[in-house]
Nucleic acid binder design. Structure first.
Length: 465
RNA sequence: GGCGGCUUAGCCAAGUGGUAAGGCAGAGGUCUGCAAAACCUUUAUUCUCCGGUUCGAAUCCGGAAGCCGCCUCCA
């Protein structure tokens, strides 16, 4: 079975073949560091994490670049309001972003380049574009001339002639030859205060799109495999990247464009301007388990809108609990021997999982494969038909699935002294058949977030997630 | 106005021509001191609606309704 991805460029599923055998170079549009990212942002970043992990699972050596946009209008306004420098303003948000990625168990990308540290690279491309007459300068600002790139609109399927020039397009803030031309370089203006770069192409700051072209080329080369982002990036951002990159290099820029659909909250798009967004911190503060959030954000096919609800998060948490309980139980098996059925179940789960993920990361199929395995093995467990060897085989397979999904493993837990004492006291009460006391202690522990289960192999505890 | 997507059980969701995966929640049961977990049984004669094609349609075609998105800040 071959790996296929839906390519926005062709609007079709295509077999993924890397440019260089065994290696994948991918650029993932990262955050603009001006605020706490919301969980919709993280849906996209986790989709990118899943993509990265699955490519690695398939044996590719992955080089991922995720940029940090640390210069744009919002950042300038924000920093000026606070009267601090750009760096002072963005530093905490960069930190928060990395902390959040860590909380959500996203693997680190190989590179996290920052726009402000790549002005030189951007200037170089802009100069090239000026030289090739793909760009022009007006009053110190430099614009990309769309009419010089016939392929413009190919990615977004937009017809520029039909673009409605309406309320959304501000009456020319900057003078441009054509409204749809976009800024590569914005000339310094008084509003910018001390935020500017003195460069060969003048005093000013970069437009938004140029950073991604400059940084992707620097770390991945002029032509690479995959470029991803949220669907809202298709136009204009990615369209513009293609235009400026291909005009600068004369080469094809990217083979596969993958876009994650948006997360909705209450069936509405979550956006900062709507004020209906949850940040990761909001959810953590309310006591939600981080891996349940990861589970939920990754539980649906990335090209489909996902409606976020707390009810859904609760369901995600419960699903996760079932998975954890399953692994916990396997770890306690001591039975000798080997049951060929276990191996058969593992193989069929693996095949189904891979078939699903191979098909444009259809994670629902992958999850079904895992739950099928859990169900079938639980049946065997009930009949005491699983040996320690079998259990290990199954656990290894779960680990392998977890390399891709990143939420199947329960973190190590321990009980504090007080809890340990309570568990012991209850055990004593049970031996004395003092059920009233035993039940009272069990309830007390539950209130402390500890769940007790009396099994034939003794009392087990787990933390409430 | 232009362009794109979606609509499957209480909720989430797979399924692109062969008779509805999986998860959560609910109900009854087995087990248990009681619970929990697990297992068993149960939960859509039906896939937004109306037509059509076909031996056969959630899947293809036509139409209608509803929802969401993009159209130069946006994951």
């Amino acid at each position: 079975m071959s790996l296929v991805f839906f390519n926005t460029l062709t609007r079709q599923k295509e077999e993924f073949v890397p440019i260089e055998s065994g290696k994948v170079k991918m650029y993932t549009c990262g955050p603009t560091v001006y605020d706490y990212p919301h969980i919709g942002n993280y849906r996209t970043f986790l989709f990118e994490d899943l993509l990265r992990r699955y490519l690695k699972y398939k044996g590719f050596q992955v080089t991922q670049v995720m940029n940090l946009t640390d210069i744009d209008d919002k950042i300038i306004i924000g920093s000026q309001k606070k009267g601090i420098s750009l760096d002072e303003y963005t530093a905490p948000y960069k930190k928060i972003f990395f902390e959040d990625l860590n909380t959500l168990n996203a693997e680190a990308s190989e590179f996290y380049p920052e726009a402000t540290k790549h002005i030189k690279e951007m200037v170089k491309i802009i100069k090239k574009l000026l030289g090739k007459k793909h760009a022009y300068e007006i009053e110190g600002s430099i614009y990309f001339k769309i009419s010089t790139f016939p392929e413009y609109g190919k990615l977004s399927k937009m017809n520029l002639e039909e673009l409605k020039v309406g309320t959304r397009v501000k009456a020319d803030e900057y003078e441009k030859e054509q409204v749809s031309d976009f800024a590569l370089w914005k000339a310094w203006d008084e509003k910018d205060g001390d935020i500017f770069w003195e460069t060969e192409i003048g005093k000013g700051r970069p437009g938004w799109h140029i950073e991604c072209s400059a940084m992707s080329m620097k770390y991945l080369g002029e032509y690479f495999d995959i470029h991803t982002g949220g669907v809202d990036n298709i136009f204009p951002h990615h369209e513009n990247e293609i235009a400026q990159s291909q005009c600068a290099t004369g080469k094809k820029f990217v083979n596969f464009w993958l876009h994650a659909e948006h997360l909705l909250v209450d069936n509405k798009r979550m956006a900062k301007r709507y004020g209906n967004f949850y940040t990761l911190r909001d959810l953590l503060d309310k006591g939600w388990y981080p891996m349940a959030i990861r589970y939920l954000l990754l539980s649906t096919y990335y090209r489909q809108q996902l409606n976020f609800t707390l009810e859904g998060l609760e369901a995600a948490k419960n699903s996760l609990q079932r998975i954890f309980d399953f692994s916990d139980q396997l770890e306690t098996i001591e039975k000798e021997g080997k049951n060929p059925q276990a191996e058969r179940l593992v193989i069929s789960a693996k095949e189904k999982f891979e078939a699903g993920l191979d098909d444009d990361l259809n994670v629902s199929i992958g999850l079904a494969a895992i739950f099928d395995l859990i169900y079938e093995v639980n049946k065997l467990l009930r009949e005491n038909q699983v040996s320690k060897t079998d259990a290990q085989l199954i656990l290894n397979q779960m680990d392998s699935f977890d390399k891709v999904l990143g939420y199947l493993k329960k973190p190590e837990e321990s009980l504090d002294d007080k809890a340990v004492q309570l568990v012991e006291r209850r055990e004593k009460a049970r031996q004395d058949k003092d059920w009233q006391l035993a039940d009272k202690i069990r309830k007390q522990l539950l209130e402390m977030g500890i769940i007790l289960e009396d099994t034939s192999a003794g009392t087990k505890w787990k933390k409430k997630i």
